[in-house]
Design a protein around this nucleic acid. Sequence first.
DNA 1: GCTCATTATGCATGCGTATGCAAAGCCGGA
DNA 2: TCCGGCTTTGCATACGCATGCATAATGAGC
Lengths: 346, 346
Amino acid sequence: MKGTKAGRRGLGRVTAEEVARRLGVSQSTISRAFSPSASISDEMRTRVANAAMELGYQPNIIARSLITRRTGIVAIVIGNLVDPFYTTLLDILTDRLQAGGKQTLLFSSSRAGGLDAIMPTLLQYQVDGIVITSAAVTSDMARICAKRETPVVLLNRNVPGLDISAVCCDNVQGGRQMARHLVGLGHKRFAFVVGQPDASTSLERQQGFVSELAQAGISSCVIEQAGEYSYEAGYEAALRLAAGASRPEAVFFASDIMAIGGMDAFRSRGLSVPGDISVVGFNDVPLAAWPTYALTTVRHPWEQMAARVVDLLGVDAAAAPVRKAVTELIPGDLILRGSTGPRRDQ
Amino acid sequence: MKGTKAGRRGLGRVTAEEVARRLGVSQSTISRAFSPSASISDEMRTRVANAAMELGYQPNIIARSLITRRTGIVAIVIGNLVDPFYTTLLDILTDRLQAGGKQTLLFSSSRAGGLDAIMPTLLQYQVDGIVITSAAVTSDMARICAKRETPVVLLNRNVPGLDISAVCCDNVQGGRQMARHLVGLGHKRFAFVVGQPDASTSLERQQGFVSELAQAGISSCVIEQAGEYSYEAGYEAALRLAAGASRPEAVFFASDIMAIGGMDAFRSRGLSVPGDISVVGFNDVPLAAWPTYALTTVRHPWEQMAARVVDLLGVDAAAAPVRKAVTELIPGDLILRGSTGPRRDQ
DNA sequence: GCTCATTATGCATGCGTATGCAAAGCCGGA
DNA sequence: TCCGGCTTTGCATACGCATGCATAATGAGC
């Protein structure tokens, strides 16, 4: 009689069935005791709660989700866990989801072959929603997700062609703000350092920056390719700029981490920031506020963006998930610190 | 006839049943086609694969795990996502798990009431294993997990009283190495900056450091409390040390991020590092290698530690999960950079 | 051509829970 | 006292898949 129906077979998992037997009631009652909206008397609810406590019973969410079709899991696909921009985003987003009773299934897309390799496994887990902070989304993916009615939200990415919601900082406006600030300081020679050349974020910031410069009568701006959003790439790009024939007076790096690498590079060449050269970035990661860097930057409205993402996912069970794709553009704030200064007369 | 058995009811999920009907075979066959070890002909396997592709079928892991009792999910409880130490750990661990076909369910313990609040939800998800990088583990938790046979591994924490496996850098040895290095440089006046006062990591590093100093004939070492592992806390602690009556010549911060805050603080007071004061940390986070800091530190054997954690979890389905609690102590490497230098004659 | 071993497939059931429906109990109003 | 409504509970079933067992099909050996 090894493990007939009763005998606590496989592992030490306690089931609703066992609690029910202990109390002489049906399994349904146990289930209802754990469902806030179910019809059950208060007395029974507490009796079940006590018995569950004694036996160490906890509802099995996996089994539950088979019926309810909701796992309570949201997948977050993140570019990399080295850039503080992404980790800050992850931190805030996870916190918000956790507060809403959702859990975070984490996928790193930098390793392991990008989104194409990840997407299938991710869907196998029947996640309630997907947040993508990076990597290339194809129309195929969009279609598959739409068919399954799994909400997808792009965070900090904007792919206009696709029918996918996106939450994004207003990069163009941020670029403009930067241009106005630097022009106001009297600078004449500018450079923009591109992150990933195909990233919409980098392109938009550049576009805003360059067009606002033009509006101020400055028609030329050196465009330097860094290749990726990293400290090292920013460092190298800055070295090239410093060694160039006509060194710029103000450099706008497409992201904070690159800007910080750039500052270190300029300083390593004996240049003073902001004395000899003004440096600005984008994101306002925690690092940017450190006194060594005191980086002037555009602050990502982190909390607001995370809140919108959660909204668009339809995380609050009641609300119907948003059907139509929506693109939210949230303006960032210009944060003035010590890395920018007035043009030095030469 | 709204959604009788056949009619693609609820959502666009394709089930094995539908694939089976399409091919005129049984649902079992579909199931077997997706199980590498099952008995099924090669021809059928490819036929099923093709049909699945056409219909967009993917096995539902949630349903599968109800039977197999394995979700393929590992929970990672992490202290905070701001300290680069934790994010680096998370990065490497997630990568390793992903490579082994496991997914990462992320929990941040700094918010939302610590481990006690997290543990129940975490177990409800029937995770295959738990990695805890922080927070206080109680014996209650250990007992519950043991009963469910859910493997738990502490990473970078050591709680000797409990029957839980742990993977940890050899902090005592690391502290000793640091002491030898700094004594070798001729320094006489030392300080140690404590992170979280109750963290075993901080205590052990301190112990190794102080005892080795003693062995070298140096019986006194200023112990400064920072309160937490953060840039700001390190910064403040350094300011206090700089303002003290007898300023130390060499300061060992319990973690890199604190050491970096400390360097910035010393420099803000006009002190040169390492000219006036040598600074060392622990962990070797990416930041530590930046030229601005060039921090001498003890390198955490990240990859090796992650590998051991995965081993101890018994992630490779075949191997029986390790029963007896094991504590792995992995030695770290002393990384010499520019933040330490010989004692300046005074 | 027959038997036996081997492989491939179908059938039935169960994993742990949620939920529609029916039945039972309870209370107040007449 | 009786009846209609409301609340609370049990029963049965379904969620999507894996798997033991039985059965059909195939091939080898004589």
